[in-house]
Each structure stands twice: as structure tokens, then as C-alpha cells.
Design a protein around this nucleic acid. Structure first.
Lengths: 220, 220
DNA sequence: GTCTATAGTGGGATAGAC
DNA sequence: GTCTATCCCACTATAGAC
């Protein structure tokens, strides 16, 4: 049915539409509370038709979770690679994390919220990817500690990493695409809080977080 | 059956045991994925018996959410009232938030995760309480801004509040009671990150977060 | 690739005896 | 206050025609 002249929305394959709509429902209502009937109705197809595209309900969750993590690992790795100074790498990682996460809230929120609904092999796969991402961030903080750029009085990099992921991940629950701040602006605020804190004397005017503009191949 | 000589665990009424077990299951498996059959089995009673104590499944979620929010509002308000300096009040609030939240993970995680499953009047009640708590924190940051103790270059108190709640709330997903840090220690780390940031020169040794020990009526 | 029809299971909740 | 028995409904998934 699709031709070269269709616009992007129309060109989206049915399989991709199923995944996208599932993500939207999973984020809004939760995985377990979402029924295959609702999903079929939202896509205006028969329930049975869904099973032509997917193996089952859990497959949807699995695919979305893997996509989410692969995407954020790729984007954050790319952002880090463009910087050499450890603190600049950290700031770039924070911005990339926020940008990627908020660019597809449905998918990333589903991964963050519904991981526990996965079972067996599928759960293992996703947890392994999630741990790999966490290691990426941990290494970044360890690098800063090694070079004396990050405070060492708060202990090892472990809780610095968990604190950072706290600060970043929960954003997905209150971000509104039509709200007053862009993901870019939110990323800068959170990066500045994380690096310099909120007290008035903590961030001299020379230390701002917006200096290194990202170089991204796409999106002019 | 209960007498004055029963110990605390045994004195817990059946109604309270139902709520506590529901909270445990809701946190572990999610509200929607938890069945009344499982709950009955975990308590070793018949399914029908549950309905002698509760109005229905959603009632459980409602009661847990209200308890969670009332508890944290009470505890944090009390902690704030003991301090006069805005930054000390902020630190006390952070510690109290973390302590209360981690002292009953089941209840608080359920409230944070499953609010969307509530409907109608019950949803309104809980959202109203949640907003009241958020206002409490906002006022604290506004106070710091007014007195010039908090950075004003990050915008209004709105995103400072959301950032702080990010930093605090997500902790409930990775905290382990048998882990290496106590809630008190985690609260101190997060308070220090939030106030002073993680960069090496951001926190002079004179600015530590542990100075004002809390005065709590209970627990010697 | 989409449908009708339905299998098979398990969900929340209630009636009413004890 | 706890039980047995059961209602009614919604769930995921499949068979098989078109």
C-alpha cells in the first residue's frame, strides 16, 4: 500500500504502528492494565490481526524495552565520544540522556516502569542491557574521580551514579512536550544542578553548562 | 484474640495485615498484575474473607496512597519546623523525605508507581494530597530564593522542585534495606549533591550537610 | 493480511451457610 | 469473621475461512 510519495506518518508500517501504539498505552495505563482489545481498537483492527505482527503481549514489551535501551546507549555513547574533558563528557551524557528519553517518552517510560513484567530470557536480556548502560555512566564518573574533578568525599562512584540516574530518569513522569521548557533546557538545568548544586555560591558565573554545543549529525 | 501481652507483630490487626501485604505485592508485581487471589493466598485466608475487611481492590490502593502521603507530609513538616535557616530546613526536609520513604518502601513505592490506577473521587483525593506535598517543598525553595541562598539563574522554584523530587523519589527503586548504606547516609549524600553539586571544587570542607542532627521525639 | 468465532483460563466480587 | 460455591465478565491467544 505504501509508495515512495507517502509522507512519513503514512509510510510507517503496520508493525511499527502496533509497537508505537502499544508504547503509548503502556506508558499511559501500564503494561498489565492495557489489554490487547484496547490496542486493537486504538489501531482500528481486529484483535486477531495483532497476532499476525507480534508473538504475544510480552513480545511488545520486550521489543520496546530493547529499543529504548539500545537507543539511549547509542546516543549517549556518541555524545560522550565527541568530548575529551571528563566534565564535558558528563554534561554531554546528561543532555543526550534527557534528549533521547524525552524524544520518545512512550518507549522509554515503558522500559523504566514495566521491566518487572518481563519473564525468563527476555527479562535477562533487558536487565543486561540496562546494566550495560549504567556501567557507561559509572565509568564516566569514575574518570572524573580519577582526575580529581569530582568530589571524592561522597564515597565511590556507585552512589554518584545512582543519584544521577535518579535525577534524570524521573523527569519522564512530569515532562510535557507542550510545556514551557524544551528537553534541551531541562537537560541544562539538571546538569547544572548535578555539577554545581543549587546553593547561591556554588556556581560562579564562569561555570555554566551550556558552553559545549553538541555536534549531532542529524537534525539541522 | 489479641491481649496486652502480644508482641508488636502479633498485635497487628488483620485489617492492617491485609494492607501491608497488599502494599508488598503491589510494589513487587504492580497493582494491576496483583490478584486478590494472590493476596488471599499470601495471608492464608479465603478470597471471600478479604471482602470483610475492604471494599474492593481499588480501596487498598487508595488507602495505601493516602497513608503514604499523609505520613510524608507530617514527617517532613515536623522536620522543617525544627530548623530556622532556609538551607537547614531544606536539608532536614531531604533527610526526612528519604527516611520516611525508605522506612516503608512498599507503601510509598505503591503510591508513586500506581497512582494512575485510581479513578474518580479517589484519584482526585490522592492528587490533591500529592500536590500539597509538592507545594511544601516548593515553598522551601522559594524561601531560599527570596533570601538569596539559592541560585536564581536556573529559573523559578518550579524546576528546582521537580529536580529535587527526581533526585529523592527514584531512590525507592534501588534501595536495599540490607545494603551498605542506611537511609540516613543516603539522605546525606543526596542532600550534599543537591546543595553543592558533584564537582571537586563545589563543596568546601566547611559546608557539610551532616551538621544539624535531627531531633525526633521517637526512636532513641 | 484481515476477518469471525471461540477456546480456555482466570479476573473481581457476592450470596449465604456456619 | 471465615468459609464454600458460584456468578459474570474480561483476558490472551488460536483456528481457520476468505
Amino acid at each position: 500500500m505504501a509508495t515512495k510519495h507517502d509522507d512519513v506518518a503514512a509510510r510507517t508500517s503496520t508493525g511499527e504502528r502496533v509497537l508505537a501504539e502499544a508504547a503509548r498505552l503502556f506508558r499511559t495505563k501500564g503494561y498489565s492494565a492495557t489489554t490487547m482489545r484496547e490496542l486493537a481498537a486504538a489501531l482500528d483492527v481486529n484483535k486477531a490481526t495483532l497476532y499476525h505482527y507480534i508473538g504475544g503481549k510480552e513480545d511488545l514489551l520486550y521489543k520496546l524495552s530493547i529499543e529504548s535501551l539500545e537507543r539511549i546507549i547509542t546516543d549517549v555513547s556518541r555524545a560522550i565520544a565527541l568530548q575529551s574533558d571528563p566534565l564535558s563528557r558528563l554534561v554531554s551524557a546528561i543532555k543526550a540522556h534527557i534528549n533521547t528519553m524525552l524524544a520518545d517518552r512512550d518507549k522509554h517510560a515503558t522500559m523504566l516502569n514495566e521491566l518487572r513484567a518481563l519473564t525468563g530470557e527476555r527479562a535477562n536480556d533487558v536487565i543486561e542491557l540496562r546494566d550495560r548502560y549504567e556501567s557507561l555512566i559509572r565509568a564516566l564518573l569514575q574518570e572524573g574521580l580519577d582526575r580529581g574533578l569530582i568530589r571524592s568525599d561522597l564515597g565511590s562512584e556507585k552512589y554518584l551514579t545512582l543519584g544521577l540516574l535518579n535525577l534524570l530518569n524521573w523527569t519522564i513522569f512530569w515532562f510535557e512536550p507542550e510545556g514551557e521548557l524544551t528537553p534541551q533546557e531541562i537537560g541544562e538545568i539538571l546538569a547544572s544542578i548535578y555539577l554545581f548544586g543549587v546553593t547561591a555560591d556554588a556556581a560562579p558565573a564562569s561555570q555554566r553548562v551550556g558552553e559545549a554545543e553538541e555536534v549531532d549529525g542529524r537534525r539541522g
